[in-house]
Design a protein around this nucleic acid. Structure first.
Lengths: 253, 253
DNA sequence: TCGCTGATTGTTGTATACAACGAATCATTT
DNA sequence: AAATGATTCGTTGTATACAACAATCAGCGA
């Protein structure tokens, strides 16, 4: 955590730069879905050679953000409403497994300290009178932390990898719709319900109740599903979620 | 299904060749786990240049068979017993989700035709007096087909992708331990139980019983877990499963 | 005007060249 | 002899050159 090695140049600096930038460009909509990603045009825009760009594209393809064309080259993928709902459901299922595994493992107090602290911080945050935009940003950070710690508690490298993979689809994130939700009148209630879920999941883990922990974690993901449905009914709000440009436009009457 | 284009050279022939060969070499144990994969040595052995090898290595890394070293280069990964069990459990969880989704979708007769046929063939196979090695090979083919059709019935591209990804770990396959099992005296009973699972999963889907379908699919995966435990208690048999060389040797007294 | 053909351009897949970094080796010193 | 420092070797990451293929566009003919 020291300030050492701030601009530590890794050996593969160009590749990670290309990967980060390309992912950003895809999520921005700067590279529209369905369009072929011309490697040379990226060379111009990023100032790195084709090789690292190619590597990054392969990784993005494995992540699921671009598709490998049979004729050669890559295309930015397009996602249907169903794809998004499926991603959220899959995350919920896997987090359910994580919660169950965590409960069955009977972690000791030391292992639970961090996530307890996280839930405590969330409690404090929710109790504030008014929730500013910054508060929502804090919520996102803490919420991310909770979900990440939950997966860690399952102590399964395989499961962790799989969950991290699905989270590469930005709209599968537990936070994908928080800012959409923040504009709803019932926003506070939704956050309270979510936090109640967090508390009971933790409680179930502490009590070693695997089945309950799994059911709760799944139920928790349905909040994201609800928020998705709300966003889907309002194009303006939908446009503000991460990776919005990747969503296939439904025909409108 | 015609005989057309048998040796159709795709554009990226070298890359797929490298990917296939490298995967084979890793699973063979030809490239021992923990050892750095020197690209130049692969160049000699495969007769393709470094570039396609590099691409293949990136893909293998995303598949989880090799790890990306911080210092640069790739290492063949090593898997603990727990990793294997976790992979099987994760597959079971995702197949459970697939079965539930399939049931909830209420597929019509036409959609169910293939999997019904598959279960029928399995029935016929199991009913034979004696099961030869070829019979077990047939079983593996049909079993693979059943699991694949089950995933297709869920009609979720996201889920399908995730399941296919976990199946890249060879010991996560539903068939990983069938040949080990084939040498057990109770082999036939295990196959009968598995087939009973297949039948009831299909039945639950036909009846639209999502919860039951999910529970059954999960239970079904526990057969693989049992077989894993059996294999783990007998090093000789363990060595015969696909990717055996990737399994970390436990210290023996 | 429409369709077909041929050339041209653009893009990818592959091979290779090059430079920087790390690891191992060997020599030197204490 | 052990430790330490310099040097050599090997390996990777990156850039670029080249060839094959696809797509596009112009021109020609009906």
């Amino acid at each position: 955590m020291t300030a050492a090695a701030a601009d530590d140049k890794p050996r593969n600096a160009q590749t990670v730069k290309a990967l980060l930038k390309l992912r950003e460009m895809v999520l921005n909509g700067e590279l529209p879905p369905g369009e072929r990603v011309a490697e040379l045009s990226i060379v111009d825009r990023l100032g790195v050679s084709r090789t690292p760009i190619r590597m990054a594209l392969v990784r993005l393809e494995e992540e699921g953000l671009v598709d490998c064309l049979a004729t050669g080259g890559f295309v930015v993928r397009e996602f249907s409403d169903q794809d998004i709902a499926d991603s959220i459901e899959l995350r919920g299922t896997m987090e359910g497994m994580a919660a169950r595994r965590a409960a069955e493992r009977r972690p000791d107090r030391a292992e639970l300290a961090e996530i307890r602290d996280c839930v405590g911080s969330l409690d404090a945050l929710i109790r504030r009178r008014e929730l500013s935009m910054d508060d929502f940003s804090d919520y996102i950070r803490l919420n991310d932390r909770f979900h990440s710690l939950l997966v860690d508690l399952a102590a399964s490298a395989v499961l962790k990898r799989s969950i991290e993979r699905i989270l590469h689809l930005p709209f599968a994130s537990p936070n994908a719709f928080v800012f959409v939700q923040s504009e709803l009148p019932e926003s506070r209630e939704i956050l309270s319900i979510a936090q109640e879920h967090h508390r009971s999941i933790l409680e179930a883990i502490e009590h070693g109740e695997g089945g309950r922990a799994e059911a709760l974690a799944r139920e928790h993901s349905r909040i994201t599903q609800r928020n998705l449905q709300i966003a889907l009914s309002n194009q303006q709000q939908l446009d503000r979620i991460p990776g919005a440009s990747l969503i296939r436009q439904r025909e409108r009457a």
